[in-house]
């Protein structure tokens, strides 16, 4: 019966819809946690990190190399992938953060684009496309599966979704209830005044760079498994969907970012069964971001004032 209803409403058999929901939620989870990582860094430093995906991709390639070319344990490769994200992001923040601190947000953002391009170039150099065979970075969790209403689910997909929710909860609590979280919020309001109050701004910012980088590394570890192959270009452009999620949250709300990420993932997956629009699925992040921004700002009144000189 549900199959008939689904076919009548959606034009697709319910049996075919179920796997797309699972795929969409899992991918949406990664978009959401990436979005949260981007928003937290933006809040603390004013930097919109366009290198988020590239950092995760580079970490994933290192993990791939460790697993396939050394006898080191796999867990070490996974830890390295996550740690690489934290270290690279931290290094960038320490070296370029102070220099960019007083610059326009657009300049700060373009600086991270430079980092993304450097990492992309390094990956293309050390791990060129081609070479005849695809790269895989499977996690042990993906070999354990179960079914929900007849849809195949593996534990990596569960981890992606649960991790996104957990990260949002923990980060929200962290920002609200810890001294460091309060410092983040203070810096977001006014960096200079916060500094004059004795808050070690650089150290606080460094912690944001490091934490956000760890999330980038985790996303880089999860995504190759969810996408079934390690394509560093695809991982690098993960930042697009993550940015859409962050924009839906207006770079402020972690919970709306979480929902935005899940919505982007679901939209991309649920358009797949429709032959007429499936090839436009990649536009889903932008369309959703624009619709959400229009909806969220519908009651705002635009005022134009002239500042007296």
């Amino acid at each position: 019966m549900d199959s008939v209803v689904a076919f009548a409403v959606f034009g697709v058999d319910w049996e075919f819809f179920k796997p797309y929901i699972v795929l969409g939620l899992a991918l949406g989870g990664v978009y959401a946690l990436s979005g949260v990582g981007i928003v937290v860094l933006y809040q603390a430093t004013g930097v919109l990190n366009l290198a988020f995906g590239a950092i995760g991709a580079a970490g994933a390639l290192i993990a791939y190399w460790m697993i396939n070319h050394t006898s080191w344990p796999h867990w070490l490769a996974y830890v390295t992938c996550v740690a690489f994200g934290g270290v690279v992001n931290l290094a960038y923040g320490l070296f370029f953060g102070p220099a960019f601190a007083a610059r326009d947000p657009l300049v700060k953002m373009m600086g991270t684009l430079g980092l993304a391009l450097i990492l992309l170039g390094l990956m293309a150099w050390r791990a060129p496309v081609g070479g005849a065979f695809a790269r895989f970075l499977p996690l042990p969790s993906s070999s354990h599966t179960f079914t929900v209403f007849g849809a195949f689910v593996n534990w990596t997909q569960v981890i992606a979704l649960v991790f996104a929710i957990a990260l949002t909860v923990v980060t929200t609590a962290f920002l609200r209830y810890t001294n460091l979280g309060t410092a983040y919020r203070a810096i977001a309001n006014d960096r200079e005044i916060t500094a004059t109050l004795g808050v070690p701004v650089r150290r606080v910012e460094a912690s944001a760079w490091f934490g956000s980088g760890l999330v980038a590394g985790a996303a880089g570890l999860l995504l190759p498994d969810l996408l079934t192959s390690l394509d560093y270009a695809a991982l690098t452009f993960l930042v697009i969907a993550a940015l859409a999620a962050a924009l839906i949250g207006r770079l402020q709300s972690l919970w709306v970012t979480l929902l935005g990420g899940l919505a982007v993932g679901l939209a991309q997956a649920l358009f797949a069964p429709y032959a007429s629009i499936t090839q436009y699925r990649s536009a889903a992040p932008f369309v959703l971001a624009i619709v959400a921004l229009l909806w969220l700002s519908r009651r705002r009144v635009v005022t134009i004032t002239r500042t007296a000189r």
Partner: peptide
């Protein structure tokens, strides 16, 4: 299928469908 494949799961579901 447009190359490179970035979403193999979805493509495989489309093929099965």
């Amino acid at each position: 299928v447009t190359l490179p494949v970035t979403d193999a799961n979805t493509i495989v579901q489309q093929l099965y469908q």
